[in-house]
Design a protein around this nucleic acid. Sequence first.
DNA 1: GACATTTAAGATAAAGGAGTCTGAAATATG
DNA 2: CATATTTCAGACTCCTTTATCTTAAATGTC
Lengths: 141, 141
Amino acid sequence: MILSKSCVYAIRATLYITAQENREYIPVKEIAKELNLSFHFLTKILQGLTNASLMKSYRGPNGGVAMARSADSIYLIEVIDVMDGLDIFSECLLGLPNCNDINPCPLHEEWAKNRTSIHKMFQTMTLSQIVNNIDKLRLGL
Amino acid sequence: MILSKSCVYAIRATLYITAQENREYIPVKEIAKELNLSFHFLTKILQGLTNASLMKSYRGPNGGVAMARSADSIYLIEVIDVMDGLDIFSECLLGLPNCNDINPCPLHEEWAKNRTSIHKMFQTMTLSQIVNNIDKLRLGL
DNA sequence: GACATTTAAGATAAAGGAGTCTGAAATATG
DNA sequence: CATATTTCAGACTCCTTTATCTTAAATGTC
């Protein structure tokens, strides 16, 4: 798995929240139930996104979590950055610390192509775009 | 990291062995020293490759390990398969068990492209080819 | 103000990957 | 046959990720 479980849960949760367009704060309990995730674990994960200012939260009845900005301005890479960091997009496939364009390992060139392609994918997809896909194409979440 | 550390160590070791063209069995101790890996840990990893018949071994003085077949017929994907399995090349990015071409998650199409590209890369590169790269281009290992 | 609801924070536990260590088995050499 | 060398097998430890649980703090409603 290229992304950690925490990161995947974070992505799924932000997509769920984005899909609830006309609602303000969404309770974590609801998200956990709908996505079939552990409530406590998801709570901790979303706290991380809140601390990173990618989401906002509100306590008490009718409270919950929401995206901090408009979902059409939030790119997938931002969620990944908060959860897993961006090292995977620059790391050597063989984990060699000295490997780079000037001093490459034997797999560097081929791997860098794929790495960059994946990076671009995450850099260009917004939460809104993905949710539109869900609506238009009736995709699963 | 897309590949486990064990898998990466296995790849680096098989490349080292492949590079020792005119020698028969190579001691694990030597490989560990040259690649700066833990001897005991590498021993366990290479035993896995031996059990999977990708490598052969010989005990006693002048013993060691060697590739079971000619290195120009061994594809990188075979090493990866033994160590990590091939699930990463069919797994959903979001880990959703029901996601596939017919019933895709919202990221499926984009991800499947990249996943396939990486898979093909590993399916087409032989150990010999990679070692030739090392020699020709003076790449690091 | 009492109470229910909801996130925040942090301690703790469970599981898996990474790494270490010890002793047994095989084999070459003298 | 004794010894040194090397892989084989398995137990064990350590660390990170994943997951659970408990208590505190904030807030809306009556």
